[in-house]
Design a protein around this nucleic acid. Structure first.
Lengths: 125, 125
DNA sequence: CGCCGATATGCAGGCGAGTCAATGCTGCTG
DNA sequence: CAGCAGCATTGACTCGCCTGCATATCGGCG
């Protein structure tokens, strides 16, 4: 697998079935797994955490390599994966590339995992 | 790999810092990544979904191989990973092994991903 | 008691993922 | 304009993971 692309966007739009209702389709499972795979890495989790807790909610690569203890190319690589998964957005200002969290991206994933307890009326099993 | 063990249990108890607060530690990131890694697989997501939507909320291996289109050893392997991650529990009745979801396991993960319960105020911006 | 069915485990092959060094690219800056 | 700093990309290496085949284990049945 490679092109996670805007996986989250494609996932959020067509109302991918969450883990709570009927058995999910193979395609939905693969999409959800793709986004989760982007999350399921210690370095990337720390990146998200670092960026989220940064002064303006944003950070550039040069601020992230040191706390992670990883090389700059590796950090760029992880940021790319997170961005393609729809979890981060990139803004280039001058020489620096600032990354920030996509507002509700992670919350969306959390909702997909949580059984439909408050979303009544949709699919009463 | 480095067996996740009862990762979720160890994670739930010591109140692992979720993705919303301060930068998370390396150890926390690895534990959370471990559980997410167990989730980040299409076959395992479908397994969870199938078991959850089964008649009694439980299913044995023989019921799961067909819908997944995977061999029995492979399904057993995935079930093992999910169980060791703390997402499934196994009960052997006679010749069959019945698997069911650990009640609040997935919800716990969702909570760890969602910003701290202090969603009322602002978000340090 | 021996056979059969349901699972679990060992082993191996193939592929994808994480990491770094080297390199290319772009926009400041002197 | 030349040089440099910040990032992205490429290539290569290693390692972990998914999968299936073969086999071991365990419980029930005839």
């Amino acid at each position: 697998m490679e092109y996670v692309g805007t996986a989250l966007a494609e996932m959020t739009m067509p109302q991918i079935s969450p883990l709570g209702g009927e058995p999910i389709e193979r395609a939905d499972a693969e999409r959800l797994a793709g986004v989760l795979k982007a999350l399921a890495d210690p370095a990337r989790l720390r990146l998200l955490s670092l960026i989220q807790s940064a002064p303006e909610g944003e950070a550039c690569v040069c601020d992230l390599t040191a706390p992670l203890g990883l090389s700059q190319p590796t950090v760029s690589h992880h940021l790319r994966i997170l961005t393609e998964a729809g979890l981060l957005e990139r803004e280039k200002r001058g020489v620096w590339a600032y990354y920030r969290l996509v507002p509700t991206a992670i919350a969306t994933i959390a909702d997909l995992l949580t059984p439909p307890r408050k979303r009544a009326g949709k699919k009463a099993r």
